[in-house]
Design a protein around this nucleic acid. Structure first.
Length: 260
DNA sequence: ATGGTGGAAGATCCA
């Protein structure tokens, strides 16, 4: 089973790239972030025509997440529990029945958090606490669980071309990295780092200042695996070639294969 | 120090 995550930076601007990539990569489940669309205006027909089921949790203008899947989910939940007044659409989870058992997949868009001396950074840290609590509550289910998305976290210096440029950024501050490590300490493992300790593994290159041309990237899109999912991990790859397409997102897909 | 780019909404915010 192939599970992917991709921050597409606007579904309407990226629909052609998405359709092409779905056909070429043929994932079973796709976690999308930054769809930047309300549910009613999400271009679901074209995606359904390729054989995918579509579940969205959108909002006007910003944020928004979705899960596309070859199989219809048994259950879908929208919104990260723990803050009733939070109106930002950053989380959706789905449960699938497979021949090998049940699997739970979440698509998350963690807050960027910049500028750091503002409410935005406090919101990011609070959101990470909520994610940790939610993840803790799911672990006792003993299911294969994949937390996939744009974490807006650079876990380690080797996850940036120029880590020194990120020292005071919300993506790399010690408190941010500590919160990410707490997720690992719960028992979740970073799929890419489970298969490779290579440098220069990036998932995001800014549109500005020739970042792509200079390979000035960062690795911020992650698939975090519960122990039961990690046991089934076959491969994990960053589909970097998509960044070279016309009209690309600034992020590329990350894909894992699980035996389930 | 600034501007460098892009999406969506709408004449600005967010990344």
């Amino acid at each position: 089973m192939k599970i992917a995550t991709w921050n597409i930076n606007g579904i309407k601007a990226r629909i052609d790239n998405l359709l092409r990539w779905l056909q070429e990569s043929a994932p079973d489940v796709v976690c999308l972030q930054e769809i930047k669309s309300v549910d009613e205006l999400f271009p679901r027909l074209e995606i359904e025509a390729l054989g995918y089921h579509v579940e969205t949790h959108g909002q006007k203008g910003f944020n928004g997440v979705a899960i596309l899947s070859k199989n219809t989910p048994d259950e879908v939940l929208r919104g990260l529990p723990g803050a009733d007044t939070d109106e930002q659409s950053r989380f959706i989870e789905a449960v699938f029945s497979r021949p090998g058992g049940v699997i739970r997949v979440a698509s998350l868009y963690l807050p960027n958090g910049n500028p750091v001396n503002t409410e935005k950074y406090l919101y990011k840290l609070a959101w990470m606490e909520r994610l940790e609590r939610w993840a803790s509550s799911r672990l006792p289910l003993g299911e294969p669980l994949v937390l996939a998305g744009d974490y807006n976290v650079i876990p380690q210096p080797q996850d940036a071309k120029h880590p020194e440029q990120w020292l005071n950024d919300a993506l790399f501050l010690p408190a941010t990295r500590q919160a990410f490590r707490r997720l690992e300490n719960l028992g979740f493992s970073d799929a890419i780092r489970s298969v490779s300790d290579a440098p220069d593994l990036y998932t995001f290159w800014d549109y500005q200042a020739g970042a792509w041309r200079r390979n000035n990237g960062i690795r911020i899109d992650h698939l975090m695996l519960s122990p039961e999912a990690a046991d089934r991990l076959v491969s994990a790859d960053i589909e970097k070639y998509v960044r070279a397409w016309e009209k690309p997102s600034d992020h590329v897909p990350v894909v894992i294969e699980l035996t389930i």
